[in-house]
């Protein structure tokens, strides 16, 4: 079985981010890391193999040159190889174009199970797995709080924690699955594992390798144009009181004055 895990190299969440002149996130200006939420997908893939699934694990990323750092982090957690789609024409792509390139890349690598995190920690759209399922014509099993693969039956089963109910969802493979941060703490790779990860093969692919024309991606092909970005005006710092036994009365006064109580 071939498990392909989608990983994204994102700006460090605690860093200060900025936007370039073309209103895209300035990825060169900030330290990056493997998106924390993708680590849960990596962890699930590695656990599947550890629990006896006969599978090869490939990590797939799309991004500029330094996105390979995300692949290396994933490879240090386990798995077999990486695929890095890198092409200057991709810069400025929206979710539509990103899903097009990743779908082509998945057709290139082949897959039985595509695993993804619940969102990237930069764009935070959470739409990519669904878009990939649509493009690939395979089931989407998203926001799994757990994951079980039955290789003999060729199925994947997850439980989803909804607002009104918990659901059990089953799909036939091949399928696109996303998992949440409830699936289990990602491992922290040892020094030895980090070194081993550096030696695993990473293949680099361009759009031409995937049969995607440059005019199908990038800002010019985007279905969405960003008109402006601005820092949200900082909130006026409010009153802070140290509780000396009277703070509750201050809070109650405040709530009454604002019409909440």
């Amino acid at each position: 079985m071939h498990v392909v895990v989608l990983v994204k190299h994102v700006p460090e969440p605690t860093a200060t981010w900025s936007f370039a002149d073309d209103l895209t996130l300035d990825r060169a200006a900030v330290e990056g890391r493997l998106s924390e939420l993708d680590e849960y997908a990596v962890e699930q893939a590695v656990r599947l193999v550890e629990s006896g699934l006969d599978a090869r694990i490939t990590y797939l990323t799309l991004g500029p040159a330094k996105a390979v750092e995300g692949l290396r982090k994933a490879l240090s957690m386990g798995g077999d190889d990486g695929v890095h789609v890198v092409d200057p024409a991709v810069h400025g792509s929206d979710a539509l174009a990103t899903s097009l390139v990743l779908a082509k890349a998945l057709q290139h690598t082949g897959f039985d199970l595509v695993l993804a995190g619940m969102a990237s920690t930069d764009a935070e759209m959470s739409v990519l797995p669904a878009m990939l399922a649509e493009r690939l014509g395979v089931p989407q099993v998203t926001f799994g709080g757990d994951l079980a693969v039955d290789a003999a039956a060729g199925t994947v089963t997850v439980h989803r924690d909804g607002d009104d109910a918990t659901e059990e969802v089953v799909a036939a493979l091949p399928a696109v699955v996303s998992v949440t941060d409830r699936t289990g703490q990602p491992r922290y790779p040892s020094f030895k594992a980090i070194m081993a990860g550096k030696k695993k093969p990473v293949q680099t692919l361009t759009l031409a390798d995937l049969g995607v024309a440059p005019e199908q991606v990038g800002a010019a092909a985007a279905g969405v144009v960003v008109r402006s970005v601005a820092v949200r005006p900082p909130k006026q710092a409010g009153q802070v009181v140290v509780d000396d036994g009277t703070a509750a009365a201050v809070v109650a006064d405040f709530l009454v004055a604002r019409g909440f109580a």
Binding site: L23, V225, V229, A230, R232
Partner: peptide
């Protein structure tokens, strides 16, 4: 932390 305005084109 940022506000962006966008249009679908």
């Amino acid at each position: 932390q940022w506000l962006a305005t966008s249009q679908v084109v």
